[in-house]
Design a protein around this nucleic acid. Structure first.
Length: 286
DNA sequence: CACTTGACCTGTCCGC
DNA sequence: TGCGGACAGGTCAAGT
């Protein structure tokens, strides 16, 4: 599922809902999707919530940090203790009743509220780290991650520096590499290239400085617009309250194969790159 | 070495 | 109505 705007929306939601609460219990329904000893987090208080690339970190009072990756279909949904579980969340877009067949694990807090980790495809994971292993600018344990698009480290020159390690890769595939730009995925790769008028099939080495400057701008632009609208819901993504994002209403090319281009008289085309669907307008994007 | 494909899973949709 | 195949916000390891 979730790329940067979706994960960041969840982060902001969790910040409002669970900071200050104490974990009182953990119900594990599918042991394959996590590898930590759930007993180790019981009795610990939630201090703060961070995001790095598409991962979420929950810092706990005992010096431990829970890190979540939602992959394609992961959801984190919070339900206030006063609400009934049977029948689903009263104000939510979610179709499933919770706990559902896709519920992997449930955190219970001392005020009887609950946080559900649902994941239909079970690609997502939860890991427990020592907080000192994953704090400040030390995220090496989480992989080789490039600059955060909303940080001052993300400049057009830093984009060029990281991109140009992949000279012979199509630019769309390259910007989805998390070591190039942290947090970009399939939707915003297509959208930012459309806005920059760059053909996704172009090899990195053919990009001019002017094009790189434009791409740097449109990456930020597409992510910021999506964040404003609560992210994109293709099928599974919901925020912590169980509501979908509405950015896809504004998408120019993603999931619009065969439909008119919004920028010219062309038609949106879908191709496959590195096993993923890419959408673009061959008329606008050169 | 650099890049592409297959695997991991579950569910849905579309064509025959 | 059923069945097979393609495909879905991601990321690895294995293969070319």
């Amino acid at each position: 599922m979730p790329e940067l705007p979706e994960v960041e929306t969840i982060r902001q939601g969790l910040e409002k809902k669970i900071v200050g609460l104490t974990i009182e219990g953990v119900h594990t329904l599918n042991r394959n999707s996590f590898n930590f000893d759930s007993q180790k987090v019981i009795g610990q208080k939630v201090l703060n919530i961070w995001r790095r690339a598409k991962m979420l970190g929950v810092n706990l009072s005992g010096g431990k940090t829970l890190v979540f990756h939602l992959k394609m279909t992961g959801q984190l949904v919070y339900i206030d203790g006063k609400e009934r579980l049977i029948g689903g969340h009263p104000t939510s877009d979610m179709r499933d009743v919770m706990p559902s067949k896709s519920t992997v694990l449930i955190f219970e807090f001392s005020d009887e509220s609950k946080l559900f980790f649902n994941d239909q495809r079970r690609f997502g994971w939860i890991k427990l780290f020592k907080t000192q292993e994953v704090e400040a600018n030390n995220f090496e344990k989480l992989g080789n991650l490039g600059p955060e698009p909303f940080s001052k480290e993300f400049t057009w020159l830093s984009l060029k520096e990281h991109l140009f390690k992949h000279l012979k890769t199509p630019v769309k595939v390259a910007i989805m590499n998390q070591s190039v730009i942290a947090g970009i995925g399939n939707i915003y790769a297509s959208e930012s290239l459309f806005l920059a008028k760059i053909d996704p099939r172009r090899l990195v080495k053919t990009l001019s400085d002017e094009e790189l400057k434009k791409l740097h701008e449109t990456v930020i632009e597409s992510l910021a617009l999506s964040l404003k609208y609560g992210g994109s819901t293709l099928s599974h993504y919901v925020n912590v309250e169980g509501n979908k994002g509405s950015y896809l209403t504004f998408a120019n090319v993603y999931n619009r194969e065969g439909q008119p281009c919004l920028g010219c008289k062309g038609v949106v085309v879908k191709i496959s790159q590195a096993g993923r669907g890419t959408y673009f307008c061959p008329e606008c994007q050169k």
